[in-house]
Design a protein around this nucleic acid. Structure first.
Lengths: 131, 131
DNA sequence: GAAGATTGACGTGTCAATCTTT
DNA sequence: AAAGATTGACACGTCAATCTTC
């Protein structure tokens, strides 16, 4: 993770947190999403996300938008610059994952590892849901 | 990791960083070691370790000791209380690892996973050594 | 009153500068 | 000058309190 993060910073000029934000926005239809939902998705406190979005908005990668129908809420939306920046960063990140992780495993190993770790993850999640 | 850390905190009253310190001291002969060596071992900056050791010394789990022969250096040494506290914490932590990780894998899966991840780790370390 | 987001106080880590000893 | 540890300034995260809207 340290290695991937350093490469992302060096070659795409993005901190990992910013990449996470761009990724999850990119996955939503319209490239937009509520603050709370986004905070949940990238595992960050709501207040933490507030300041991250402040910076990213200054950098022109996204914009806060009013939510039609609920004046409490705020939407975060990708800008064109944000989409371009994400595309470039994603290329860097995918190459990194391939090079530093996937390339060291056989196909069979990859599958086996995924299956095993999914079980571990699911068990942890289940326990988290009902503590 | 979040789960293990929460359990350690709740059942043994130790932050993960403190556990790491106790563990690595416990592994050294005499339960003592230099500050710099310890910082390297637990992957923490030297200055970060300074403050952690401050707190742990206040808590009575370890002591700073003069190093005979080099007045620049400082040794950190486990106290009796530190050893007791580590034993209790280690029991909690081992149980957690067993329960939340190992128990979800077959013996064969465990071995395969270890071999595969060791290769990934070694590759990352090699690249880190010569960037 | 509860949901949604923001603000302020604080904890923990890194980095650069400092001080002592070699 | 270089090794060893500490100090101070700062970045980034969490939690509790606040403010607005439902």
């Amino acid at each position: 993770m340290e290695l991937l993060e350093a490469e992302l910073e060096a070659e795409a000029g993005l901190p990992m947190t910013w990449y996470d934000v761009l990724l999850h926005l990119h996955e939503r239809p319209g490239g937009r999403c509520r603050m709370g939902e986004l905070a949940e998705a990238i595992v960050l406190s709501r207040s933490g996300l507030t300041t991250v979005v402040d910076r990213m908005e200054e950098a022109g990668l996204l914009q806060r938008r009013l939510v039609p129908g609920d004046r409490r809420a705020v939407d975060v939306a990708l800008t064109a610059a944000g989409r371009r920046r994400f595309a470039a960063a994603a290329a860097v990140h995918r190459r990194g994952i391939d090079e530093h992780f996937v390339s060291h495993l056989s196909t069979a190993e990859g599958r086996a590892l995924a299956r095993a770790l999914e079980r571990v993850r699911d068990a942890a999640r289940a326990r988290r849901a009902t503590p």
